[in-house]
């Protein structure tokens, strides 16, 4: 459905998107993941014919974005980061306008508007001014706008940014519900979002595609090597460096453990990060080992951050080379 080859966008001083190639099949939801400023929006803007690529080609539904932009535009629904709504318009009036400029036939326009309002759950605000709606509603009006002409491809730029957790879940469900009819590319810098909605992930950093994989493969990487946090307290407050060392040795001997990293040992407790081999369940064994040694197990939790770790690893150059605060913020938000 979407075929991108060597897509490049160069500005006077920097390269925003650097020879990206990928393909998306019909009906898939693909997550476009990367820190802020990685080139997600630029790529999307080239796909939607908002700006022409400097180099390379992109095809949407068989039409090239530079040679046949009109046909591409007819087949794409696009939700930019801020929903492109006119605050002074009423919802229904706005959708009517968008439907007209997107070329929805007049005869079916009204029924189509009713349909998308129902899909996006905005029927109850149909006669309200968009400027007076909450952010969640405005986002849904933006989504309704993107699907009003029933496009083959939906491109959503950070569809959940700035929403509260409740609205985020609603929006995600809505997107998942749209997946059958449309091929969807959505961008985000939030990892759980990709996990929750997408079948495939493309990770982009500094304009380059650093990884592209199916969600299953990433998940197996995620759950294969489990990382566990352990916190142990000695009985009778017998806390000493020797004791910490002995705990560590004990943990290392547990079957399946590949590495034990001491995090800190103070206030009468010792904390470790335990990495296990693929396919083993070490948590019960760890618990038993601690109890049998006569210590108290204060905490045992799965770290479950491996996708984050993959992400950070793949996009690490960002931290080393540029003191940008943006990726940091992205990681925190995640």
């Amino acid at each position: 459905m979407i075929k991108v080859e060597g897509l490049t966008k160069r500005y006077a001083r920097n390269v925003a998107v650097d020879h990206i190639s990928f393909e998306v099949e019909k009906g898939q939801i693909v997550g476009f993941l990367g820190p802020n400023g990685a080139g997600k929006t630029t790529t999307m803007r080239m796909l939607t014919c908002f700006m022409p690529p400097t180099e390379g080609s992109a095809q949407v539904a068989g039409f090239d974005v530079t040679e046949n932009p009109m046909e591409v535009k007819r087949r794409i629904g696009y939700l930019p980061e801020t929903p492109p709504v006119y605050p002074e318009m009423e919802v229904i009036e706005y959708l009517d306008f968008v439907g007209r400029i997107k070329g929805v036939p007049k005869a079916s326009l009204n029924s189509r508007i009713d349909e998308v309002m129902q899909k996006c759950a905005i029927t109850d605000v149909r006669n309200k001014e968009i400027g007076k709606l909450s952010k969640g509603y405005r986002q849904r009006v933006g989504l309704a706008q993107a699907i009003v002409h029933n496009p083959d491809v939906l491109i959503l730029d950070e569809p959940t940014s700035g929403l509260d957790p409740h609205q985020i879940i609603e929006t995600r469900d809505l997107i998942k519900g749209l997946a059958g009819d449309h091929t969807i590319i959505l961008s985000t810098h939030i990892l759980p979002e990709v996990e929750a909605t997408c079948q495939r992930v493309m990770i982009i950093n500094r304009g380059k595609l650093v990884a592209t994989d199916t969600m299953e493969n990433l998940s197996s990487r995620l759950h294969g090597a489990e990382t566990v946090g352990v916190e142990v307290i000695p009985r009778d407050g017998a806390f000493s460096p020797e004791w910490v060392r002995s705990v560590r040795e004990k943990l290392e001997k547990v079957a399946g453990v590949s590495r034990v990293i001491g995090k800190d040992a103070k206030d009468g407790r010792a904390r470790f990060t335990v990495e296990s081999q693929t396919g083993t369940h070490v948590r019960p064994e760890l618990a038993r080992a601690v109890i049998e040694a006569g210590w108290q197990l204060n905490e045992l939790h799965g770290m479950g951050l491996s996708l984050e770790e993959i992400f950070l690893e793949l996009t690490a150059s960002n931290y080393e080379d540029t003191p940008e605060p943006a990726p940091q913020a992205a990681a925190e938000e995640a």
């Binding site: 803007r45 939607t48 014919c49 908002f50 009109m70 535009k73 007819r74 794409i76 696009y78 930019p80 980061e81 801020t82 492109p84 709504v85 006119y86 605050p87 968008v98 400029i101 997107k102 070329g103 706008q145």
Partner: peptide, 14 residues
Amino acid sequence: RTGTIELLVTSPLR
């Protein structure tokens, strides 16, 4: 300013 230009430009309009 409001970004609605993106809607117009990405619509099949000349």
